[in-house]
Nucleic acid binder design. Structure first.
Length: 332
DNA sequence: AACATTAACAACCGCCTGTGC
DNA sequence: AGCACAGGCGGTTGTTAATGT
């Protein structure tokens, strides 16, 4: 016996939404919000629709600040880059594209972007790291991050990026992965000062880290723009570390999180730092488990590799694919 | 003009997960 | 601990408009 349906399909309307239904839902949402219960909403709003259908209509179409229409080249690049890194996790990808919904991106990928890539109408150079990223990469390698005397890193960090996202992969056994700032200027924030030159200090909001699957996301507006805000409900062990941390220290949260980063990162878990809105030239960084001995070579997915990914659709998340890693390491 | 095909995207489906009891 | 439920998510299907034959 299967799961009971969420509503009586004989009694609910299906198919495209009429302008009248849209107006009703909009009006109800403006006045009452979801009230924390989508299932009960249609009845209250006077709609003969399934609650799930209302939720979808709202999130994908009626919600304010939804961006419709053509995707920009920057958005293309972000989608390609993220797809190459994390696969078809559309909600995560959508979180990096303010105003876009996961459904929108998924449709765009399936109908246009995939073809664009295969047809070669996307400039391969667009998927490679830009000059700024190269500079950032060199800073990472030049600074003391990997050279903590107490615990050597098990491998060199790797680095990759698209036009405005930076993927930085650290070894597991680091002792100074991130320098948490104790300055009053950076209340509730952290910096990666040990990685960057002062003028490039990377500050992220400590209030905005979010946990999902094997990803821990820190960041500003971009990471808060998930199509439905669901991540905000998914704070777990990291949040706890942040909130309780080391009681003897004023910078409780920072120390707690630092401890977590030192000790608690599990296999396959990655950290994502975002300091602003994707698509506006901001800095994102990924840290996580070692994925190989890259040395000074960037882990950078080329057009050909993304094409290959598309053609082998079973390969959904090749960032974590050890074989792929080894293959690349050998290649470099 | 009529029909077939393709593209685009809205909507649905069913599984999974988190939460409250 | 176990269950039920609501909501989230990704895959898939349905619908419509545009284009080709």
């Amino acid at each position: 016996m299967g799961r009971a349906p969420c509503c009586d399909k004989a009694k609910v309307k299906r198919g495209p939404w009429s302008p009248e239904e849209d107006a009703k839902l909009k009006e109800y949402m403006a006045k009452h919000g979801t009230g924390g219960n989508w299932i009960a909403l249609p009845q209250k709003a006077g709609l003969k629709r399934c609650g799930k259908s209302c939720r979808l209509r709202w999130l994908n179409y009626l919600r304010p600040n939804i961006k419709h229409g053509e995707f920009s080249d920057d958005e293309d690049r972000i989608i390609c880059s993220l797809y190459a890194n994390i696969g078809s996790r559309w909600s995560i990808i959508a979180a990096q594209l303010p105003g876009r919904t996961d459904n929108d991106i998924k449709n765009y990928w399936n109908t246009k972007l995939k073809k664009k890539l295969i047809m070669g109408s996307i400039n391969p150079d667009a998927l490679r790291k830009p000059q700024q990223a190269a500079h950032f990469s060199s800073l990472l390698h030049a600074t003391s991050l990997p050279s903590s005397p107490s615990t050597p890193l098990s491998s060199s960090p790797s680095f990759t990026c698209s036009s405005n996202s930076y993927n930085y992969t650290l070894a597991r056994s680091f002792t100074e992965p991130i320098s948490f700032s104790s300055s009053p200027l950076s209340n509730n924030s952290f910096t990666t000062a040990s990685m960057l030159q002062p003028q490039e200090t990377f500050v992220g909001s400590m209030q905005n880290y979010q946990v999902k699957d094997n990803l821990i996301m820190f960041g500003g507006e971009a990471s808060c723009s998930s199509s439905d805000g669901s991540w905000s409900n998914q704070m777990s062990h990291v949040k706890e570390e942040y909130e309780h941390g080391d009681g003897a220290n004023n910078n409780t949260g920072q120390v707690g999180l630092q401890n977590y980063l030192h000790n608690g990162v599990e296999d396959g878990q990655k950290l994502m730092f975002s300091s602003g809105v994707a698509g506006h030239g901001v800095l994102n960084g990924w840290t996580g488990k070692p994925i190989g001995l890259w040395g000074e070579n960037p882990l950078d997915y080329s057009l050909e590799e993304i094409k290959q990914l598309i053609s082998t659709s079973s390969c959904n998340n090749f960032l974590f694919d050890e074989n792929k890693t080894a293959e690349k390491a050998m290649y470099y």
